[in-house]
Design a protein around this nucleic acid. Structure first.
Lengths: 222, 222
DNA sequence: ACCTGAACACCGTTCAAGT
DNA sequence: ACCTGAACACCGTTCAAGT
């Protein structure tokens, strides 16, 4: 039973972040209000300003938490690999991380929404940008390992990473908004696995083709 | 010079939609306010309620317009094909439509945002859902034609269409929020073309492989 | 340090009223 | 039909003040 005592929280900041996530899950980031979050946390409507510059700053904290959890989910993605036979090849780990991305999105849609769909002023939230870069770094490292292992063509890993990212991000966003005909998490993940496999068949290095492909696709600076 | 006359607009509705798009482009759909739109249109703050039930209803109209324009862009995508040698194969037309999707997104980011990132109550905006279904129908038809032409494997076109959609949607969303290292429209489209080509290599039908692939990827209903 | 209440300039939405 | 002004219950944010 919460009673009315002053100076309740020792750790108001994380409590506010948690309340914000809860609220966003209920009404979306658009209808989300700072005052309601304060009410939920049992504090006055302007106590949050002790911990966050403004509403966007709280949302940036939510997004930062999201990127940290995403990075961890990608790092831990080996655990979810199927079939479960040891660590697998780098390419298999890359696929597993793609599935982990979609799984994270399905289970934390409110985080993904704030992370990607809330217009935050650039430069105002450095921890957020750092967390985002860390998560992308995990993906990039997996791509480079697959290249080193000979599973993906040599060269700039960036286009490969961006292509893989785009596919899983698209799946995640469309699945979250119920735009794909795969409603359950299981069906959505089965579809994601198939889609990732399809992309992989196109990305895989095949002897004698890489040079020609790269020459054809490479764009010339004007 | 706009003067203060009563009963100005004969066609307030489209004017409000246009003003809304303009406003969303400036401040995003979150900071967008109905009252400001009314001000821009030179009418009182509650005149919009003659044409829209509420704020969401105006946003739904924006999203509907977006889906209509997207469907048209996909339909017209042959025009942008490179190299420009006749209508091309169905698979080439499918690729061109993917590029058209990304191009539309880059040029109308505010539409895409409202179309996909604004939580509109389902069932309340039937024209919106119809327009969305029409746009998806264009994609589905292109996939089916590519199947009929032997460029894509036979069977349910839905997973193929969803895979292609996911990729271009992911590219579009990430490009719009400046998350990809391809800032100009040209670079973003070059990347999109490469990514689409990569996916296509994975999707294309290859003799003797389809059966095995499908059996391996097909998920069993539990 | 952390919290409060009053205040300001805004919203979305409704309503009674005007032409 | 289309528009208006006043009103209501909300916001985000600020400020002077309390412990």
């Amino acid at each position: 039973m919460p009673s009315k005592r002053p100076y309740h929280h020792g750790n108001l900041r994380p409590a506010l972040i948690a309340a914000a996530v809860e609220r966003i899950a209920e009404v979306g980031p658009a209808a989300f209000t700072l005052r309601e979050v304060a009410r939920r946390a049992g504090i006055s409507h302007n106590a949050p300003y002790r911990h966050f510059r403004d509403k966007d700053d709280l949302l940036a904290a939510v997004a930062t938490q999201g990127f940290e959890r995403l990075a961890k989910a990608l790092d831990d993605s080996e655990k979810h690999r199927t079939p479960r036979k040891g660590p697998g090849t780098p390419l298999e780990r890359l696929c597993a991380s793609g599935l982990a991305y979609v799984r994270f999105a399905l289970r934390s849609p409110e985080h993904l929404q704030v992370m990607f769909d809330w217009p935050l002023e650039t430069g105002r939230h450095p921890e957020l940008e750092a967390a985002g870069a860390r998560a992308f770094g995990v993906l990039l490292r997996l791509v480079e390992q697959a290249q080193g292992h000979g599973d993906l063509p040599e060269g700039d890993p960036l286009p490969l990473a961006c292509t893989a990212w785009s596919l899983v991000h698209g799946i995640a966003k469309l699945a979250i908004s119920s735009r794909l005909p795969y409603r359950s998490e299981r069906k959505a993940l089965d579809f994601a696995r198939e889609a990732i496999d399809t992309l992989n068949r196109g990305m895989r290095r095949r002897a004698g083709r890489d040079q020609a492909d790269k020459a054809a696709a490479g764009s010339r600076e004007k």
